[in-house]
Design a protein around this nucleic acid. Structure first.
Length: 448
DNA sequence: CCTACGTTTCCTTGCCTCCC
DNA sequence: GGGAGGCAAGGAAACGTAGG
């Protein structure tokens, strides 16, 4: 027997292909080469132990992510190809990756374009050191050595969005759902959030936080903090995540938060002070807007506001918004957070993850910087007020000015735009390139 | 103890396939 | 061709806990 699965320990199950990898490694001589066709779950976090052994005992040469549909209609599983030699990976080496999606993938499946041709024109170089340094041996097949260089250049000319030395302070909205549903305790009459949701749309029982009375969904009165029409009494405009679904959409609040409901603990008014940037927590890509209506929002919307010092220096919220909505920051977010499978690519935004998003550093002592900053601000106003179109002159000029702050070359710009070419369709992409996406930038053209 | 916020959980949406 | 049903990605929101 070549191999005893018990030797792997008993923590969780091993997929058959993982065992096959282990057997293959054991069977190879030093320097011997293998190529494996594997499911794309090889990239998943829970397969870290398999990748660890693979990278520790093999020199990985190629990783191709080919997507589903390669083995007939019955096999929907995403496919990858890995090529490696026996012997530990060298830290300074690189591996080649390609990620197939969209039309190119269909052509490849039909055999109209050989993989070798795609590899010669479209492969990326991935530094092996990045995989070895990752705690989960993550292979970010989208993020090449070129991306690392460009992202380093961007970071060098930027200040972080928030965090210790960041531009903005941050908060999130009321601890309610977007409908503002409340339960009212029949005993002490104080409002509270409903119990945990259970399957089937119902709510679970919970104890009243004030008096301990057991609240059961069938026996409590409900109330709502959010109403469609301006209520009698005190109220404030309310914006939820759904309202922030487009680039440069200025939200006209259509819902209202009732203020002064007895017993409800509102967040401090000051976190909603105008102006502020609202950024939705969930979603593909970055969606943010500028709010000047003192609107409230639910916890699923993040609030960013310039700190006193940067605002005193001259930064305007419009400039921060322009950076957040730029193609360049979308590129950074995608490269940093996108999942490996293009069909599942989506950015998960948390305060911590977006804290170091790059906002261009402006030196307000220099006239040139001040002029450029103000030029961005005026163009953002035009877009927000609907006087300029997405993808129009103003939108493109903003991107150019920001890229000068970031010190990115024209080639870098073409490369960044080209990296969106392979991504799946979505609102985020449509809003970034309303007139269509440019072709991928072919680095080889530079030397040809 | 309280606040802030990342994590977990569940619902919704939209796509795909199957079957009539 | 289209409707039903299955499935999972996407999104919203409650939960739980770290850290002041």
């Amino acid at each position: 027997m070549l191999f005893n699965p018990r030797s792997l320990g008993n923590e969780g199950d091993w997929d058959s292909w993982e065992l096959f990898i282990m057997i293959s490694i054991d069977a190879l001589r030093e320097g011997g080469r293998l190529a494996l066709v594997l499911p794309d779950s090889f990239f998943y976090p829970q397969k870290a132990r398999t990748r660890k052994r693979f990278f520790e005992e093999m020199t990985v040469e190629k990783v191709f992510s080919l997507g589903p549909d390669w083995f007939g209609p019955d096999v929907r599983m995403g496919t990858i190809v890995v090529q490696a030699r026996r012997g530990r990976s060298k830290n300074a080496s690189t591996l080649h990756s390609i990620v197939l999606s969209g039309a190119l993938r269909q052509q490849a499946i039909r055999g109209q374009i050989p993989l070798s041709q795609i590899e010669s024109t479209r492969s990326r170089e991935i530094p092996v050191a990045r995989v070895l340094e990752s705690p989960t041996y993550e292979i970010e097949v989208f993020r090449s050595i070129d991306d690392d260089r460009i992202m380093a250049a961007i970071a060098a000319n930027s200040v972080c969005l928030s965090g210790a030395d960041g531009l903005c302070e941050r908060a999130r909205g009321e601890e309610i759902n977007k409908a503002g549903l409340l339960w009212v305790c029949p005993s002490c009459l104080s409002p509270t959030t409903p119990g945990r949701k259970v399957k089937g749309g119902a709510y679970a029982d919970k104890a009243c936080e004030k008096c301990g009375h057991l609240l059961r969904p069938r026996f409590v009165d409900t109330d709502s903090l959010i109403v469609d029409r301006k209520p009698k009494g005190a109220f404030a405009p309310f914006i939820d995540g759904d309202d922030i679904a487009r680039r440069y959409c200025q939200v006209a609040p259509r819902k209202w938060l009732r203020l002064g409901v007895p017993g409800w603990e509102y967040k401090d008014d000051s976190i909603y002070r105008s102006p502020k940037i609202l950024l939705r927590q969930a979603g593909v890509g970055v969606f943010a807007t500028l709010d000047e209506t003192e609107a409230r929002c639910p916890q699923s919307v993040y609030i960013y506001r310039l700190r006193d010092l940067p605002e005193f220096k001259g930064y305007k919220h419009e400039f921060v918004l322009a950076a957040l909505l730029s193609r360049t920051v979308a590129y950074v977010v995608f490269k940093r957070f996108a999942e490996v499978d293009p069909a599942k690519a989506h950015a998960k935004l948390t305060h911590e993850r977006i804290a170091d998003l790059p906002i261009p550093r402006v030196d307000f002592r220099r006239r040139k910087d001040r002029t450029a900053h103000d030029a961005v601000v005026s163009r953002v106003r035009s877009l927000l007020e609907g006087k300029a179109q997405l993808g129009g002159t103003e939108d493109r000029e903003i991107e150019q000015i920001l890229r000068e702050f970031w010190n990115l070359s024209a080639d870098d710009g073409a490369y960044i735009n080209g990296e969106f070419f392979d991504l799946p369709e979505g609102q985020a992409i449509t809003d970034l390139f309303p007139n269509g996406r440019p072709k991928p930038f072919n680095r080889e053209l530079e030397t040809a």
